[in-house]
Structures are given as structure tokens and as C-alpha cells.
Amino acid sequence: MNSWTEEELAHGWHSAAHLRRSLLAGCPVPRLPPQTVRLLPGEILHGDTQLRHEVWYGMDVTYTHSTFAFGGPVMFAAGLLASAAGNAHRRRQAEAMAAQQWRFHGHNRTMLTSHRVMAFASDRWVTWEHRAIVELWPTPQDFTFTLVFNGTDPLRLTGPGAPWFSVLLAFQLYGPAFLAERPEFHSMGTHVPSPGHGRVIEGARERETWGDPAGGT
């Protein structure tokens, strides 16, 4: 798995900044030509790219509790202490694994339409409809954004195309005032940020495509 290049991140950043300026200027929402993926009647495809998917949830984890002691009183006590230490270590590991956290769910083809976010993950298409989104948390400087839903686990999407997706989602979900006034988008100028202040973003090297307000792709 390769890290996304500076060129790919710069392309994503400048495309997102251009989209924001265009939408705030009243230009039409960009659209892509039809793909093989069937859409709903009246649904419009806006973006199609590869993004890293993470989902926030906890899980049930079990561990083996063991007791091992042998020999005389001294050796017996030492064995009990060793068993207790091992059990405590396994319990801490299980607790850490079970805690709610971001869990990696692959680098997946992700599409943004007028109705929903779609992804091809684990050999099937998964859909998150706009009407189920309760909150959008954009972090374009880190090339990521988070979606909080009604009835399902939060989703975090990361990659060169994430700022572009978050700009258009902000416009779709909240309108131009949100896109213009939210401080997360104020820094979208010519300077390309370093994501996560040095944190490496890893992902498959894929060609990103998204709609161009001028009409191209």
C-alpha cells in the first residue's frame, strides 16, 4: 500500500478550493457522465474516487483466563503471580480491542451523488443516504471528513478527494451559508496543508475523478 503523493494531495486540495469558490459564486453543482452503476431516477453523480474508510464502533472481545502453578510453596506463589500478570495483560489487551475506536474498513471506490454516498466495500455496494446524515464534520486540512448518522455508526473518509467531497456535501446538506461561514473551509487557498501535521495518509494509487464546474471531469 503506497502513500498518496504530494501531487495527488495538491490536486485534491486545489480542486476542492476551486469547487468552493464556484459554488459560492452561484455556479451549477458539478456532475459526471453516467457510469455502469445504476442510479435512482433523477439521481445525479457528482464525484467518484478512492477513499480510506473507517467506522467508529466497539466490539465484544474474549480472552483466556489461565492459572498455572507448580512445585513447592515458593514456586507455587511465583507461578500464581506469573499467571495473574499474564491474565491482567490479556485483559488489558482485550479491553483495548473492545473499546470504541476507529476501525479500518479498506480503501474503497466511493461515489457522491445528489442523494447519497456510495462505496464498493467487501465485494458489495454500501449506501449512506443524505437524509440519514445528522452531522458533517469537515477537516479538509487533514484530507478527511466524518459523517454522523441516525441509526448507524459514524463514518470517516480520508484521501486526496476528501476535501472536494466535504465541500460538496456541506453545500448539499446545509447550503451556501454553511460553506461560506464555517472556519474549517476558510483556509482553502493556494497553500496545500500537510495532513495531520506529519501524519501519513496511506491509500491505493487510484485516479480520482470528480465533476468540474466548467463541465469536464
Rank of each mutant, 00 (worst) to 15 (best):
G189D: 05
R182M: 13
G12L: 05
L147P: 03
L32D: 01
L155N: 02
A214F: 02
E135H: 14
T64K: 05
N87V: 03
A84L: 08
F104N: 04
A96Y: 06
A94M: 05
G151D: 01
A25V: 05
V61G: 03
A99Q: 10
E184S: 13
M1T: 13
V167Y: 00
P41S: 02
H89C: 08
S122T: 15
T146D: 07
A94W: 05
A85H: 13
H130D: 07
G161V: 01
G215V: 00
G71D: 12
S114G: 00
G106E: 04
G26T: 03
A94C: 04
S194G: 07
G203Y: 10
L112F: 05
A214P: 04
L40D: 08
E184A: 15
V167L: 01
P160C: 12
R21N: 01
M1E: 12
P195G: 01
I133V: 10
L19K: 06
P140G: 01
A84Y: 02
R156H: 02
L39A: 04
D142T: 12
G26M: 04
A180P: 11
G86I: 03
A214K: 06
L112T: 09
L19G: 04
R91V: 00
V37G: 08
P30V: 01
F76I: 06
H18T: 12
A119S: 15
R92I: 01
R205E: 10
Y57F: 15
F76C: 10
P193R: 05
L168R: 10
E135M: 13
A121H: 10
S15D: 04
F68N: 12
G12V: 04
Y174M: 11
F165T: 00
P138L: 08
W13Q: 00
L157V: 00
F165D: 00
T64L: 06
E206Q: 13
S122Y: 15
S194C: 09
R52L: 07
T139Q: 13
E202K: 12
E6V: 10
R52S: 06
H89A: 11
